[in-house]
Simulated scan of single mutants.
Amino acid sequence: MADEPTPTTGEAPATGTDAIDPTFTPPAPAEPPPSPPGDEQLGEGGMRALAAEREARRGLEKRLKELEPLAQKYQEIQDSQKSDLERLTERLTAAEQRAQQAESAGLRMQVAAAKGLTPEQAARLQGATRDELEADADQLRALFAPPEQSASERPPQRTPVEMLRPGAIPDSDGAAADMNAWMRRKPPTTN
């Protein structure tokens, strides 16, 4: 029996009770999962290694999903353990950034107003200093300047109508109304 060749399936020779039982069928070898196109060139050993790597990656991705809430909790704990000075320093840095942005926007609006630009044009101004912003505003005005009109092309200017009187003043000569005269002219009424 020792001289018998080993089966080519890669399994050990049957021993013990398995050798005696004629109904025994060896388990089928595990088939590797289907591989994407192009993996056939790897051969059997490469396919097994690739399948093992893919399985390991799936396991690590699952483990990563399990650890994400723990990392978030750790960050919350770290934030809660920061000293008041660290928290105030972070808030100060954020406030300084907002102040710098507001100052930049204010300077941009000042230059735009001085140069006669619309708010939409002011938003397009570029530059870090007042001089750079003014130069950019001059270029922008030159690009969008309205064409010059001659005096004959201008619409006529309207002048206000003079001597308008409000409706509360009577059409009389402007004398004060005499209430007694009005009462005498009024027809008598009976109650």
Rank of each mutant, 00 (worst) to 15 (best):
A151W: 08
V111E: 00
E11W: 13
A122K: 01
A175D: 09
P29S: 12
P166W: 00
A135L: 12
D21W: 03
A12S: 12
A168Q: 06
E86Q: 15
I77S: 06
L50D: 01
D136W: 02
A14P: 01
K65L: 15
Q41K: 13
D173F: 09
A113F: 02
Y74C: 11
A95C: 00
R87I: 10
S35D: 07
M179W: 09
T159I: 04
D136L: 03
D3C: 01
A12K: 09
E44K: 10
L125P: 00
T8S: 10
T159R: 09
R98A: 12
D131H: 07
E68Y: 04
D3W: 05
Q78L: 04
A56L: 14
R57Y: 11
F144Q: 06
N180S: 12
K82A: 06
D136S: 11
M1G: 06
A105L: 13
N180E: 15
A19Y: 04
A175T: 13
L164R: 15
A181G: 08
A176M: 09
L133T: 01
K115Q: 10
A123D: 13
P37T: 06
Q81G: 03
D79E: 15
D3T: 11
Q157T: 14
A99T: 09
P22K: 15
A176I: 12
T25G: 08
A94M: 00
T159W: 00
E40T: 07
T89Q: 14
A52V: 04
A56D: 14
A52N: 10
D171P: 09
R98H: 04
E120L: 09
K65C: 03
R108I: 02
A123M: 14
K115F: 04
M183H: 11
A2W: 07
Q157W: 00
P69M: 02
P187C: 01
P26H: 13
K82S: 12
K186A: 08
G174E: 07
P22C: 04
K82G: 12
Q101R: 12
A151T: 05
A112L: 04
A168L: 03
A122V: 04
D39V: 14
Q78V: 08
E120D: 15
A14G: 05
D3H: 02
R87N: 08
E148L: 11
R165L: 05
L85M: 08
M47A: 11
T190I: 06
A137C: 12
A135F: 07
P27C: 03
P147W: 05
P170D: 15
M1R: 13
P5S: 05
